[in-house]
Write a protein that binds this DNA or RNA. Structure first.
Length: 320
DNA sequence: ATGGTTTTTACTGCGTC
DNA sequence: GACGCGGTAAAAACCAT
């Protein structure tokens, strides 16, 4: 509990700092101090309360239309699937202070200790809850490492939760299912990461991820379309510092290829990489096959083969 | 397990700076 | 001579059967 002591000390320091940086009291001209714990601003000399209850009473979120307003303007934290209890369970603060910042009596302190302990026990009551807690941690870790946006984490959490509810876990590792959830969520959100990229940040092997992923998708009836090559383009283009123009061109190439049906059976990542390379060529921007191969994690040979095909397909159809 | 397809690995030759 | 690019053959990985 040395933690709470250092915490208290730093709080006192803050207060003395605020004292010196004070405003002037409108009544006696003395300096004014802010007392955050009581939510008041008080004159140091005459004791006049310049401001009280300095609490933000506004709605928690901005609402941009009436529907959103209905959803958001009421009091309460938003629920999130990213926490194992959706953020709804009670948390008991570890500081032995009441709502006004006053210290608790020793009997009250003991009571709070007991409550804390039991609250914790209820929160992670059974194995499922503990399981979920760990898995969500993993999901968050991997999503961060992959630079995936928040909504993907949410989706991944939902998928995992469903897998857990359907008793898909027995026989499979928490790690594996978490990873598969992230993989699936990223694809569903249209910001796919290749299996290799996923494998890099996961603690399980590629084969297991693939196996678990297939299993989860099948059992949960998830509809995941094959990754669209175009969704890789922005990421590759920006890692290579290419212009908007080339990015647009790359998309064009891919769309044309799609119409011609050149792409079936080929890896989407390879196609995307080839399109990016070809586009850079067409717009006279300097890139090398090696560089593209690097960021896309695809062999140069594959890039060569694909981009020949892309350009051939383009030639038959004169530029629009 | 098998066969067909795609991707990778490794190596070689060509032209340019 | 290093670099970027192209091509090839054989191995490996993948997929459906």
């Amino acid at each position: 509990m040395s933690d709470s002591q250092t915490r208290t000390r730093s709080r006192e320091q803050e207060e003395t700092e605020e004292q010196s940086a004070g405003l002037e009291c409108p009544e006696c001209g003395g300096s004014v101090i802010a007392d955050d714990e009581h939510g008041e601003t008080v004159c140091q000399d005459c004791g006049l309360v310049v401001e009280e209850d300095s609490v933000d009473r506004g709605p928690e979120w901005r609402a941009f239309d009436s529907k959103e307003k209905d959803e958001k303007s009421r009091v309460g934290a938003p629920t999130t699937n990213m926490m194992h209890d959706k953020g709804l369970s009670t948390n008991i603060d570890w500081r032995d202070k009441d709502a006004y910042g006053n210290s608790l009596s020793s009997t009250q302190r003991k009571k709070m200790q007991r409550l804390r302990k039991w609250n914790e026990r209820f929160r992670t009551r059974d194995s499922k809850e503990r399981n979920l807690k760990q898995a969500l941690g993993e999901i968050d870790r991997m999503a961060s490492a992959l630079g995936l946006p928040e909504n993907v984490r949410e989706t991944a959490s939902v998928i995992y939760r469903r897998a857990l509810d359907e008793d898909l876990l027995p026989g499979r590792s928490i790690e594996g299912v978490s990873t598969a959830s992230v993989y699936a969520a990223a694809r569903q959100a249209g910001v796919p990461r290749s299996l290799d990229e996923i494998t890099d940040v996961s603690r399980v092997e590629k084969s297991e991820i693939a196996r678990t992923y297939r299993y989860v998708v099948r059992e949960l009836g998830l509809e995941v379309q094959p990754a669209d090559p175009e969704s890789y383009v922005p990421r590759f283009a920006s890692s290579l510092d290419l212009s908007e123009e080339s990015e647009r061109r790359a998309r064009q190439l891919l769309q044309n290829a799609k119409e011609k049906g050149v792409h079936s059976g080929k890896s989407p990542v390879g196609l995307a990489a080839a399109a990016v390379y070809a586009a850079a060529l067409l717009t006279n921007e300097k890139t090398t096959q090696a560089a593209v191969s690097e960021v896309a994690d695809i062999s140069e040979v594959t890039i060569r083969n694909r981009y020949h095909e892309l350009l051939e397909a383009e030639q038959d159809l004169p530029v629009a």
